[in-house]
Computed example of a mutant assay.
Amino acid sequence: MAAAPNARRSSEPIVADATAPVLGIGQVLAKLSTEFPELTPSKLRFLEERGLVHPARTPSGYRKFSQNDLSRLKLILGLQRDCYLPLAVIKDYLADVDAGLNPPMPGAALPGGPSLLQTGRRLSRDELTREAGATPMLVQDAFSSHVLVPADSYGEESLVVLKALVELQRSGIEPRHLRGFRQATERELGLIESALMPVARRRDPSSRAKAAELAREIAGQLEVVRSSLIRSALGRIAP
């Protein structure tokens, strides 16, 4: 008897459907926690509430994520971690992608900004030093001045900062001259903590996730103001 026209031959490989919702929240955390240790169930639910991910639901109401959902989560979390982008910006970018457009990667066009093609890449201290074109002494000075934080491995942001320190050193600006930046950062942190107080008082997981995202958004707006002030000041000293 002849095989049906659509029957799969036994020698043909089975191709997994990347859109099939097969992963529960625990499985998603297991796959992503190494790269994104801050990811929690409440964070996943918060991203869904904000409309960035759309997991399927079982008849019992359990969330199920596909491989495509997993890739989308990695992109969202990478953009947050490496480019400090607020969720509103990431959501607009994803909406354009979902609409079939080809928008530029947010954050990739920023001068000296990390390449999203390398999101998640981790470097040893020696690799960081070599790729930035820095000397071990400069790296140690950056640690001593609290411009960089010693760690087991370093991401793209640390590489961008160290490259900037290399260029600043060529102009006679050493890491020790930037200690005031750390003090200004602590003051900004105080502003953010004060703004988050109403949300931080709530102890439920959803509120903690909202507080973390609001902190990122406030930090992003403070960066806009700081950059504007610097550009205005440059206008006074430019020849």
Rank of each mutant, 00 (worst) to 15 (best):
R81G: 09
S60I: 04
C83D: 10
V89F: 02
L73H: 03
E127A: 14
G61L: 10
R125V: 04
C83S: 13
V89D: 14
L87I: 13
I90M: 09
L85F: 05
Y84C: 10
Q80Y: 04
S115I: 05
P114C: 07
M105I: 14
C83W: 14
Q80T: 14
Y93P: 00
T58Q: 08
I90H: 07
S124P: 11
L128K: 05
A134K: 07
S115H: 11
L87R: 12
R57P: 00
T129F: 00
G133Q: 11
L94K: 00
A95M: 09
A134H: 03
P103G: 01
R130S: 12
G107R: 11
G61S: 11
P103H: 02
S115K: 13
A99I: 03
G107I: 12
R57K: 15
G112V: 11
P136N: 06
S71D: 14
P114Y: 03
L70W: 03
D96C: 13
S60T: 12
R72I: 08
G120Y: 04
G133A: 04
P103Q: 02
P86Q: 09
R81S: 13
A88H: 07
P104F: 08
S71K: 13
D126I: 05
G100H: 00
K91D: 06
L110V: 10
L101D: 01
K64R: 15
R121F: 04
R57S: 14
F65A: 06
Y84R: 13
I90R: 05
A132S: 13
R81C: 05
D92C: 04
I76A: 02
P104M: 02
A88N: 08
T58Y: 08
D96R: 08
D82N: 12
Q80V: 13
L128I: 11
P111K: 09
R130C: 04
T129Q: 15
K64T: 08
L70T: 12
L128N: 04
L79M: 15
Q118G: 04
P106C: 09
L116E: 05
L87N: 09
G112E: 12
D69E: 06
L73R: 07
P86E: 12
P106V: 10
A99G: 00
D126G: 05
I76P: 00
D98H: 09
R121H: 08
S115M: 06
E127H: 04
G100W: 00
G100Y: 00
R125S: 13
L75F: 08
G133E: 10
C83K: 15
L116Y: 06
M105P: 00
A134R: 07
E131S: 11
L116C: 06
R72W: 06
N68R: 14
A99E: 01
L94N: 00
A99D: 01
A134G: 03
Y84V: 10
P106K: 07
E127F: 02
S124N: 10
S71M: 11
V89S: 10
R122T: 12
S115E: 15
A99M: 00
G113E: 10
P103K: 01
R63D: 08
S71I: 04
G120I: 12
A95H: 09
P86C: 10
L101V: 01
R130H: 07
S71T: 11
I76Q: 01
T119K: 04
D92P: 02
